[in-house]
């Protein structure tokens, strides 16, 4: 059997070419925005930026110490959660609800509010059967922008921590939030939305359409069915930012497997590139802002190396097919494991998307991950469990990777008996403690959440597949929530008070358990003086450092999750192949 078809190679090649071509210009552009250099074509937005500051009483010249920066993001996130919660619970009496959807239950509203405010976009509801247009646009889509811009703001603050010398401050959260939204996310989303509309992604606020079937059918009760109600809505605007902001929450329940959300091969390619576009480009922004672009390329190379290995694993696993189906006589020689995948996309395009969406903390899907082969499912799960640092969420992913870089230079320092340094800053005990929190908090939340869920009846009640696959569903859910991904192994009944509450807590802990220590690192590093590189300094732009960084990420991820993975996808793989 040929495991890598020409189609797969062309798809991956197109994807990689487009992404790499965009990384440098976009990275330098974003660096300029966070350094206050607004490009001439976007300066017409300046009056809007200044109007926002005036209306909100923000002094854009006022710099913040890290604790104030953290307090600002906490205040902003609290307001975001409460607003999204309120919008959902009041949607029954608010306008733009042509289908007259009632309010979701309080626990579901809590879960969704937390989910969108933390850039997770875990969806315990079916969008087209639950949310009004107003809720989709004012609550959910707005949070797609705001939560993404907040993550990017924290990254900008961390980079300033590396770049500044003996500075007590790391920037202004409100300015970073506004500029990230106004100059980066909004223009990119507008371009993307127009491109998607050109491909047939719908954008309307008209009521759902009743269409007459060309070929009448019969329902399960034997009654004739002559018409069908088609859900429509403002889809393109949500899809563009759901990919660019690594949010992932679809307008429709089927997400980007839905033909009105992802209708053509070109819309599919644009969307999968958009998932990794900003996280990859931010590596170059980092290099530019710290004054050494090689540092950004090195981080990007480390991310890409892990990505490529995991992509190869999923491509080969899915192309190889499902052994259980082979035993039933299903011919998988041509298509591979097609269960849960769109025929129009096939295994290669689906696998590429699955790896991209779990490497980045996007979570949008064009195929159903629960139906992947156990090894394919393991790869998607593990990419999240690595802490969403292989590209990861916009801003938050690179923050996590830079925490791993601190751990890597610390280990290298221990090996050669020198004080560790990174980018001219001595890494002390405080930075190491904070980096340890960044690495350990999401991992701990995944394992504790999974353990609690499989130990209590309310948790086990949601598992429909007994055995290792059921365990994988729970492990995937907490890996996704705690690392703010949002995708799911379908089959788990998660819209219950127990799951809504515990997964909501996992999202909050995973988000702020990382962002607050990252800001502490930023503040601590910014206050330090610059140390010139000496003979004992480990260069951090070389292949040696890239290998060391990859090794640290992979070893930490393997040690943390191998026992749990052994209970789920690994034992399922052994069962299927034995």
């Amino acid at each position: 059997m040929v495991l890598m078809t020409t189609n797969a190679l062309v798809q991956v090649g197109l994807f990689a070419t487009l992404l790499l071509a965009a990384v440098k210009p976009l990275g330098l552009f974003m660096a300029g925005i966070y350094e206050g250099r607004i490009p001439r074509p976007l300066r017409f937005l300046g009056p809007i930026e200044r109007a926002v500051y005036r209306a909100a009483g923000i002094d854009q010249g006022a710099e913040m110490i890290w604790r104030r920066y953290a307090t600002a993001i906490l205040a902003f996130s609290t307001t975001s959660v409460l607003t999204v919660y309120g919008c959902q619970r009041l949607q029954g009496i608010l306008p733009l609800n042509p289908e007259h959807f009632p309010a979701p239950t309080p626990d579901s509203a809590f879960n969704t509010a937390v989910s969108f405010a933390t850039n997770t976009n875990w969806q315990g509801y079916g969008g087209e059967s639950t949310m009004s247009y107003l809720t989709q646009m004012i609550a959910l889509t707005v949070q797609n922008f705001a939560s993404a811009a907040a993550g990017m703001a924290v990254l900008a603050a961390l980079i300033r921590g590396f770049a500044r010398r003996q500075s007590p401050t790391i920037g202004n959260f409100w300015v970073d939030l506004t500029r990230g939204t106004l100059y980066i996310l909004l223009p990119l989303s507008l371009i993307m939305a127009v491109a998607l509309v050109s491909q047939g992604v719908i954008q309307t606020v008209s009521p759902y359409r009743e269409v007459v079937l060309l070929e009448p059918a019969v329902d399960v009760d034997g009654e004739p069915v002559t018409s069908r109600r088609i859900a429509v809505g403002p889809v393109a605007s949500q899809v563009s930012i759901k990919q660019l902001g690594t949010n992932g929450g679809g307008f429709f329940n089927a997400n980007s497997a839905h033909p009105l959300e992802n209708p053509t091969p070109l819309s599919n390619l644009l969307q999968v590139v958009a998932i990794l576009l900003i996280p990859a480009a931010l590596c170059l922004s980092f290099g530019q802002m710290v004054g050494d672009r090689r540092q950004g390329w090195a981080i990007l190379a480390a991310m890409s190396a892990v990505f490529a290995v995991m992509l190869a694993l999923v491509l080969v696993s899915e192309k190889h097919g499902n052994p259980a189906l082979t035993r039933l006589g299903v011919d998988q020689a041509a298509g591979g494991n097609m269960e849960g995948k769109e025929v129009r996309f096939g295994t290669a395009t689906s696998a590429l998307w699955a790896v991209a969406t779990t490497a980045a903390s996007c979570g949008s899907v064009n195929s159903m991950h629960a139906s992947y082969t156990p090894l394919g499912g393991l790869a998607t799960m593990w990419l999240m469990q690595l802490g969403e640092v292989i590209f990861g969420g916009v801003g938050s992913g690179l923050c996590g990777m830079l925490a791993f870089a601190l751990v890597a230079v610390f280990l290298a320092g221990l090996m050669v008996g020198r004080t560790p340094e990174y980018l001219g800053k001595k890494v002390g005990a405080f930075e190491m403690k904070m980096a340890a929190l960044v690495v350990l908090i999401p991992s701990g939340m995944v394992l504790v959440g999974t353990a609690v869920t499989v130990a209590v009846p309310q948790g086990r009640a949601g598992v429909f597949n007994p055995g290792p696959h059921g365990f994988s569903e729970v492990l995937y859910a907490f890996s996704s929530a705690s690392n703010n991904n949002g995708s799911a192994f379908a089959g788990l009944k998660a819209d219950t008070p127990f799951y809504n509450g515990l997964l909501g807590l996992a999202m909050l802990v995973g988000r702020f358990g990382v962002l607050i220590p990252v800001l502490a690192i930023a503040g601590s590093l910014a206050a330090k003086k610059h140390v010139p590189a000496g003979a004992g300094t480990l260069p951090t732009h070389t292949p040696l450092f890239i290998v060391l960084l990859v090794a640290v990420v992979v070893v930490v991820g393997a040690l943390s999750f191998f026992p749990a993975l052994a209970l789920g996808p690994i034992v399922e793989h052994l069962q299927l192949t034995s």
Binding site: W66, R67, A70, T71, L74, A75, S77, T78, V81, L82, Y85, R89, P106, D107, A109, F110, A113, V114, G428, A429, F430, K433, M434, L505, L508, F512, I516, P517, A520, G523, S524
Partner: peptide, 30 residues
């Protein structure tokens, strides 16, 4: 029921703010 979830949100973020203060103290001690 709404009240309980809203209180949970406020308590979580209040706890985060407290954690931020504790980390700031840890930083000054180090």
């Amino acid at each position: 029921m709404d009240f309980a979830w809203l209180v949970a949100v406020v308590v979580f973020f209040g706890g985060c703010d407290l954690a931020t203060r504790l980390l700031a103290n840890l930083q000054s001690e180090d």
